[in-house]
């Protein structure tokens, strides 16, 4: 315990902040605050990714998690509500029970995980080092992540691009690029919902 590496202190500090932010998300009911805290959570985890040597992931998380998804959530929140209603205690306790049991099971499994930073663990020893060695001779690009992403796992990334395309397509179908999709309104209280498809304007 005499010589604690400075990155470990950074790691622990960032983890503490992550826990505080996640806990606030659980406690708060103002949706605006929750959405902004989600952005903060993403940004903090991006900072931790840098400390964990995952620079590409940190970059993406900062741009996507803290940037785009916060904007999207704010946009959606603006179209819906600004305050979450309180949850009945019964439901809270039930969820707490499920979450505790799941957490206990996962904690029990921690003992089998490799130690933090172990270079000889099964996860780090074989395939990862193979990719680094192969990139030096096959692709000759400095960024191994790009090489694996675009070349070794090119098919995977193709599928992912299609997923993004499908998501864009789905949202255009659901909401419409100009916001006109499905502009019909059902009357939930008392009236027949299925009939109201007729009064499309």
């Amino acid at each position: 315990m005499s010589n604690v590496p400075p990155t470990l202190i950074l790691d622990i500090g960032l983890m503490a902040m992550l826990v505080v932010v996640a806990f606030s998300v659980v406690r708060l009911r103002s949706l605006f605050a929750i959405v902004m805290l989600q952005g903060v959570y993403s940004l903090l985890s991006a900072a931790w990714f840098v400390s964990l040597d995952a620079v590409d992931v940190a970059f993406t998380e900062a741009a996507v998690g803290a940037g785009i998804s916060t904007v999207l959530m704010l946009g959606a929140m603006l179209l819906t509500e600004r305050e979450a209603k309180p949850v009945p205690l019964q439901k809270q306790l039930g969820s707490l029970f499920i979450v505790t049991v799941t957490g206990m099971a996962l904690f029990y499994a921690i003992g089998d995980m490799p130690a933090f930073g172990d270079a000889h663990s099964a996860a780090n020893a074989y395939l990862g080092t193979d990719y680094i060695a192969a990139t030096k001779t096959d692709i000759i690009l400095p960024n191994v992540v790009t090489a694996v992403l675009a070349s070794y796992r090119g098919f995977d990334t193709f599928g992912e691009t299609v997923v993004i395309f499908m998501a864009g397509l789905g949202i255009v179908l659901l909401l419409g690029l100009n916001g006109h999709a499905g502009k019909w309104r059902a009357q939930p209280k008392g009236q027949d919902v299925s009939n109201s498809r007729g009064d499309k304007s």
């Binding site: 179209l79 998501a167 864009g168 949202i171």
Partner: peptide
């Protein structure tokens, strides 16, 4: 796709 998603959300009337 990101711009499309933003357009879709932004064009809905608030």
């Amino acid at each position: 796709a990101m711009v499309a998603i933003f357009y879709a959300f932004g064009s809905r009337t608030t």
